[in-house]
Amino acid sequence: MDLIIYGLGRWLHIGSGILWIGLLWYFNFVQVPGLKGAAADGTAAGITKHIAPRALELFRWASLSTVLFGALILGKQLPSALLFANKAYYPIGIGAWLGIIMFLNVWGLIWPNQKKILNLYQYATNPASDEVKNKARRIAFLASRTNTMLSIPMLFFMVASGGLFRRAFFGG
């Protein structure tokens, strides 16, 4: 049982996390700056129609599986981590809270607004107006940038919550 939870669970948590944060960084460091140039020469449709929707699907489900496998690994220690029960839980508690905030950002702000921007799901047959899309674009952009900012401390506290890294940074 331990092998499944701590071995397979940890493997899948990290794999999902790489997919999630990798795509987040792709959106922020590659796609958004690249779209400016693509819009200028009329090639943006290739990205917004064929690449962004596929990347967003993987992105949002990877965020869910990262959080679920993270909760699985913590198991009975989850409440202690989230409530900072004692100092041993401080690094993982901060990392977990940052991950949860980022996950809520994905499902509550980024995904609903990207659906409007890219005409996905219910907006495929009934597209949002340009005014609504412009507002959605700004909200999705800032939520995505907020997640990029939060990913830096989140990653630090995730890797700092165990092993030699933890001892180096927090002693004991």
Binding site: N28, I94, M149, I152
Partner: peptide, 30 residues
């Protein structure tokens, strides 16, 4: 004042500052 999240470097610097603030906070707390 411009929103620092509008630029990539502003976002990264904010992330590093937040890391430092949180790290020092829990380092001195524990």
């Amino acid at each position: 004042m411009k929103n620092p999240l509008d630029s990539i470097w502003g976002t990264i610097i904010c992330g590093l500052l937040l890391t430092s603030v949180l790290y020092n906070f829990i380092y001195f707390l524990s």
